[in-house]
């Protein structure tokens, strides 16, 4: 695709969304049989699976911690998830995303309850269209809850950015590529604690504030959908 002249025309983005509009979001809890917990998230064209195993015995043993469980996160992209085949295995980008994902999730867990154990979070991106790390975090948080791991709260995540000098929510790949700024953010929604923040591009102070406003609002919305997904899985259904 060539760079379009404008990314926003008459207040509408290329895919018809308003600047503060999220892509269609679908969250399902508990969709994998063998995993202790799992979730599937679709955010626009992103399709992301997350599975949680554990708390279980840590292997290799020398990585056990005597006083706490260890949270391990692996963010991985399927070779067929992007236009040009991605070489399998971790690259620098996915190592970094795995790290910041772990740091985004860890503070809501009570790891001290499970000494010598590991909680494994596996995030697999099946189809990518920008925003995979945030979709992965949303899925992972639901999967952790689905696994019955005690949590202080959910973690909700979204990206905000700047295209054509307008602050927008939830960038697509085209907007990320041709836009100015991308800022993924994750938060613990009830207390509004920011646990992930990355940014590249350009923001003035005012734009940064405006972007935060947008992110806070959207995380609220995503939080509601995460809880709804868990409710749908676990609510006792009345027999007709």
């Amino acid at each position: 695709m060539k760079k379009p002249e404008k990314l926003i025309v008459n207040g509408e983005r290329l895919d018809g969304r308003a600047p503060d509009e999220l892509r269609p979001l679908k969250i399902e809890a508990g969709i994998l049989e063998r995993a202790d917990g799992s979730a599937y998230v679709e955010l626009g064209a992103n399709k992301v699976l997350a599975a949680v195993y554990g708390p279980r015995e840590m292997h290799p043993r020398h990585r056990q911690q005597p006083d706490t469980a260890v949270l391990r996160c692996r963010y991985n992209m399927a070779p067929f998830s992007v236009d040009e085949r991605k070489r399998p295995g971790p690259d620098r980008r996915s190592v970094e995303i795995s790290k910041v994902t772990r740091e985004a999730l860890e503070s809501v867990l009570f790891l001290e309850l499970y000494p010598r154990s590991v909680i494994d979070v596996f995030i697999e991106v099946l189809q990518a269209d920008a925003g995979t790390r945030t979709a992965g975090i949303n899925a992972a948080a639901v999967a952790l809850a689905d696994a019955g791991v005690p949590m202080r709260d959910m973690v909700s995540s979204v990206a905000v950015g700047k295209i054509d000098d307008t602050i927008v929510l939830d960038l697509t790949k085209d907007e990320d590529q041709w836009g100015t700024t991308d800022m993924p953010i994750a938060m613990v929604p009830r207390k509004k604690l920011i646990t992930l923040l990355q940014m590249d591009g350009h923001f003035t102070k005012e734009e940064f504030e405006q972007a935060l406003d947008l992110a806070f609002k959207a995380c609220e919305q995503i939080y509601g959908m995460q809880r709804q997904a868990l409710r749908e899985k676990y609510a006792i259904k009345q027999e007709e």
Binding site: S107, L197, F203, T204, F216
Partner: peptide
């Protein structure tokens, strides 16, 4: 004085 990149690290959090 405008921002061109940010990165949060560590398992703790920041308030706005």
């Amino acid at each position: 004085g405008s921002i061109c990149a940010m990165q949060k690290g560590g398992i703790g959090y920041f308030l706005r």
